[in-house]
Amino acid sequence: MNNIPLLMKREYWEHRGGFLWAPVWITGVILVFTVLGILSAEAFHSSSNIHMGFSLDELRSNIGQADWSEAGNALDMAQLMFGGVTAVGVFFVLFFYLLGALYDDRRDRSVLFWKSLPVSDTATVASKALSAMIVAPVLAFVVATAAYVLFLVLVTLWAGAHGLNALPAIFAAHPLGMLWRLVLTLPISALWALPAIGWLLFWSAYVRSRPFLWAVMVPLIVLMLNWWLGKLGAPHIPDDLHLAGILGRLLFSILPGSWMKAEGSTVLGSHISRSLNPDHVVSTFDPSNVYGLLAEPNLWVGVVAGLALLAAAIYCRQRRIETAA
């Protein structure tokens, strides 16, 4: 197990495109559109809202304390937006990364090379799960943060060109407060993602072909079967256990921050509101709020399920090499 860091490096080598360059492209496109937005605003001498919730006219005519804090909140929202958009990227990258992680090397037979080295299957599977829990989300977060800094520079320059000082807005925002609060969500997201990580890695190790189909169709069919049994009046899992939410977590919990909507879809009940407060973004991510999740069985049931699925993935990895192809 002491070679796990090197095994994770290996994952990074293979998936640099998804782990690093995908978030770079995503945030790059946002920044390009920001510049385009600024340029078109300049071209039309328009003072309409530029996707930040405050307009130049307002700022010029009547800058009060309330406006600054509103502008600050809008900047916090922008910071969250950079994190959120890259998080969606992380979801897609991880979904296909995990489905291929224990399947692609069997299909191209390079598994024979990896298995010829003194690396245990447990260490291999663990390195892939840890890459999904840590490497991809952290890299995306670093890229998103760097992009947000660039965004602030762009906004400051643009405001400066119009004789406005954007610094009070930035001071009214909570860039550092948001930063460390969002950093603190990373471990929660990693724990929350375990059911999906286990589920996708299990199918990746188990199937002889088409891991995607199995991973997606099995929950879908179970859901439809349960609904049908319910219609017939036969024994089935009742609605209040919210089967869709449970099965959904097997597929979607790798989306960083997806626990935010947790209270609506929980079997075991959640009493702390973790939905976004649009009027005061930064308070949504208060650690006492976020870490309340650690006190809920909902999270830990998922962790246990995820670890069980990972154990199943290790079992399959030890025994299955051939694919149908």
Binding site: L6, R10, W13, E14, D105, D108, R109, S110, L112, F113, W114, K115, S116, L117, P118, V119, S120, D121, A123, Q318
Partner: peptide, 30 residues
């Protein structure tokens, strides 16, 4: 298997080396 592979090497027919890996990365990994 993991202990055994410290003492045993294996070359299967060509093309089991992963195609994406760089020569320097393969050396660093092994």
């Amino acid at each position: 298997r993991a202990e055994l592979m410290e003492q045993v090497c294996f070359i299967a027919d060509v093309a089991v080396l992963p195609r994406w890996i760089k020569v320097s990365e393969a050396i660093e990994f092994v």
